[in-house]
Amino acid sequence: MPGNALQRYTPQLVGAAALLGFVGFWEAAAAYKLADPMFISSPSRIATVAAEMWEDPDFWRDVKVSSTEFIWGYLAAIAVGIPLGLVIGWYKRAQYALGPFIDVLNAVPRVTFMPIMVLWFGIGIWSKFAVVFLGAVIPIILSTYSGVRTNEARYLRVAKSFGASQMKTFTSIILPGTAPYIFTGLKYASGRALLGVVVGELYAATAGVGHMIAQAGNAFETDRVFFGVLLFTFTGLVVTSILARMEKRFDRWRPEGAVR
């Protein structure tokens, strides 16, 4: 029944209508000079710029630089963060020793270290890599850690009672129980990694989408700034939805109601 379908998609329809309304209003505001388009740009101007940039090799170089920073920094954070989180979750003495450092790093926005990273690694790709890594690794460590810690004692007891080896206990109890937590951390960390890219490139860089935004801002090219921002929005949405999809595959054993 069409009425039913309409009802089912009400949230999406209302949301889409609101978005369209917003875009329309924006366009109209620029067209009728309610505000200077030089300051607020407009959807059509952003679209024009997007088409131009698509042809521009400089833009693709910026994209390549930013994605390199993001991907490698993020992957390195995963490669270090998950094992470290597992270790400090499993060995309490490792937690005692490393906990204070992790707490301190967690309390401070890691972008604070940007000046130091530039001092150490220069204004090239490595300082960004370092900031992305630092930003992303802490939430991954912490959520993996809390995943291991909340592994319920009763499941460990089952493994012990059946004489499971350390390895078996780890793969059959610790890992599956921790997976949802790891994904929460990964999602959060992806935001932090993207933030690292932006801040790194705003602060000191010679290339990258963030650098492009900063330069466009200095030249009052509002259209380009908006285009860059939207590119980051898009990236953020894509990364989160990829992670959500991966999470679903690991999560078949959880009742629907508990999944956020």
Binding site: F22, L202, G210, T222
Partner: peptide, 25 residues
């Protein structure tokens, strides 16, 4: 329903990317 798309989009954006825009404004 109205707020949701804006909130999710903003949440997915590293908001500091708006910085050059705010400086202009």
């Amino acid at each position: 329903y109205i707020l949701d798309p804006f909130l999710s989009a903003l949440n997915a954006t590293p908001q500091v990317a708006f910085l050059p825009l705010f400086v202009m404004w």
